[in-house]
């Protein structure tokens, strides 16, 4: 049962939302370019899908706009700029590097540095940790008493 469900999910996964042939560009090279651009644009309605993958109304409108501009011969960055001007950084699935996104992009380096510092701290603590200490006379007496052995 679960296997069937998994198979079904796998089969449904890669299907693109641009199923309507009327929405596709007649030139396959242009259509491919439009798809590459569309996969980098976030659908603002579903938010975790690109406009190529989303079935939302707004995603369809944006797919059409991308295709219109590609057909007009606009370069990729002009198409991205058009959408970015209207929807901001969030619409780009790869956000640009700037002060607001520095933390986002820097997080892997920050995490790595934090881990390295943690490991160094732990190592140092191990180094300064003292070895086995001598028992005091009182402790030795108590131990002997507990284990029932005669005193030394």
């Amino acid at each position: 049962m679960i296997r069937w469900l998994l198979l079904l999910m796998l089969a449904a996964g890669p299907a693109l939302a641009v199923g309507d042939p009327a929405d596709q560009l007649p030139d396959p090279a242009q259509e491919e370019r439009a798809r590459v651009i569309g996969r980098e644009l976030r659908c603002m309605v579903c938010q975790n899908q690109s406009i190529e993958d989303s079935d939302a109304d707004l995603a369809r409108d944006l797919r059409r706009i991308v295709r219109e501009q590609v057909a007009q011969g606009k370069p990729d960055d002009a198409v991205f700029r058009f959408v970015h001007e209207r929807y901001g950084d969030f619409v780009l699935l790869k956000p640009p590097f700037k002060p607001e996104t520095a933390l986002l992009w820097g997080m892997p380096a920050i995490a790595l540095l934090g881990g390295a510092l943690l490991i160094r701290g732990m190592r140092r603590r191990q180094r300064v940790a003292p070895g086995p200490q001598e028992l005091t006379q009182a402790e030795r007496d108590r131990l002997a008493q507990l284990s029932g052995r005669p005193r030394e």
């Binding site: 603002m44 309605v45 109304d57 707004l58 409108d61 944006l62 706009i65 209207r86 929807y87």
Partner: peptide
């Protein structure tokens, strides 16, 4: 058509 809305950055 919803085209002016896109110029405003509307998403719903």
């Amino acid at each position: 058509p919803g085209r002016v809305a896109i110029d405003w950055g509307l998403y719903g």
